[in-house]
Amino acid sequence: MDSIHSADKARARRAALVMGILGLLILVVFIISMNSGEIKLGPLQVIKTLFGFGDARQSLVLFEFRLPRIVIAILIGACFAVSGCIMQGITRNALADPGILGINAGAGLAVVLYVSFFPVKTAASPFLMPFLAFIGAALTALLIYLLAYKRHQGLSPTRMLLVGIGVAAGISAAMIVLTILLDPNQFQFVQVWLAGTIWGTTWKFVLALLPWFIVLIPFAFSKAKVMNILTLGEQTATGLGAPVERQRLLLLAAAVGLAASSVAVGGGIGFVGLVAPHLARRLVGPQYQYALPASALVGGLLVIVADTIGRTISSPSEIATGIVVAVIGAPYFLYLLARAR
């Protein structure tokens, strides 16, 4: 018993150390990102501006352009990563991810439909679009769940993955048809959005995303023990007294909300929900009380690094954050696929 207790303490210390290092890395990249961009601000200028001693131009660049975007990059990275970690847990499938399962596509379809009828520059858009994206993502998740669930067999992880890929392909085709019907301004916005560009770069979008983050991330963390039980399998979890279907649906709703709100603000950024949880589990182990917060930190770090690279590598032009993430995530997905096979 003492040896088990000691092992738990050692795991907790290792997880705390790893998460501390990840937090420090996010802080370092945060500082680098504030100094990076088409308009150069030196470290001393950034410090002076942060404390209110910069000129009007420096204040505008830092507080109105860079800081909101950096904060949004961290938030959507954390949300996508935790969403992916939840989905991998409840489906017991290492390849599950809101992008691969079609959740992002469902949210994206709702956003494209909204853009087709209403201008995206209205004051209500930043706050309305996450809710619309959630409805689209929730309907997609429900469709996937109904198609993948078999009464006598339960929810097969493999079937759910295949159904999700099929539904995502169908929704993507529908979005292509819709984009053809858009006027040039709307078409340009949708193309930028689909490429995974963080288009919501003002404090309004931070405020629109923040409630989803504040409510759903702590909720997911509070369900860590339930997720540990669910990974044992449906029969074992039921035998231990866990209301499997109810908890699975609650966790799925949280995962959908996190992914949908991120899609509404950050566009079609893929692979974060796939890569970040895997890296987190390699660093802190499979127990979800450590894997969930570590996933959030890895996801935030991955997206802020990708966004900083995208903004600076070909300045003054910009590479979409989703493209930079895909360069990292696609090879890793193929590696996981090969291992699963």
Rank of each mutant, 00 (worst) to 15 (best):
306 A>K: 09
325 V>T: 04
33 S>K: 07
168 A>D: 00
56 A>V: 10
308 T>D: 11
137 A>M: 06
74 I>H: 01
328 I>N: 13
83 S>A: 11
4 I>E: 12
238 T>S: 00
128 L>G: 03
64 E>F: 13
177 V>K: 10
307 D>T: 09
221 F>W: 08
297 L>S: 04
35 N>A: 12
206 V>Q: 01
250 L>T: 08
256 V>Y: 10
118 F>W: 14
323 I>Q: 12
321 T>G: 07
207 L>Q: 14
129 M>Q: 09
126 P>Q: 14
134 F>C: 09
123 A>G: 12
118 F>K: 07
242 A>L: 13
248 R>C: 03
26 I>G: 06
136 G>L: 04
272 V>L: 10
224 A>M: 06
74 I>A: 09
138 A>L: 13
121 K>G: 14
258 L>N: 11
264 A>C: 07
55 D>V: 07
212 W>F: 10
11 R>D: 15
65 F>C: 13
5 H>A: 14
251 L>R: 00
245 E>S: 00
117 F>N: 04
14 R>M: 13
106 G>M: 03
314 S>Q: 15
86 I>S: 01
182 L>N: 11
307 D>F: 10
33 S>D: 13
325 V>E: 08
69 R>L: 04
268 G>Y: 01
294 A>Y: 00
298 V>S: 07
13 R>K: 12
311 R>F: 10
231 T>E: 11
340 A>N: 15
190 V>F: 06
157 P>L: 12
200 G>W: 02
152 H>A: 14
149 Y>Q: 11
303 V>F: 09
18 V>E: 05
293 P>M: 09
292 L>S: 07
284 V>F: 03
244 V>Q: 01
173 A>E: 14
293 P>K: 04
222 S>G: 04
35 N>R: 13
136 G>Q: 03
182 L>Q: 15
19 M>R: 02
272 V>H: 02
67 L>H: 00
71 V>E: 10
179 T>R: 11
105 A>G: 12
15 A>T: 11
177 V>A: 14
115 V>L: 08
250 L>E: 08
109 L>D: 02
222 S>L: 05
301 L>H: 01
301 L>W: 11
267 G>P: 06
273 G>E: 04
252 L>E: 01
123 A>V: 13
31 I>V: 14
113 L>E: 12
277 P>V: 13
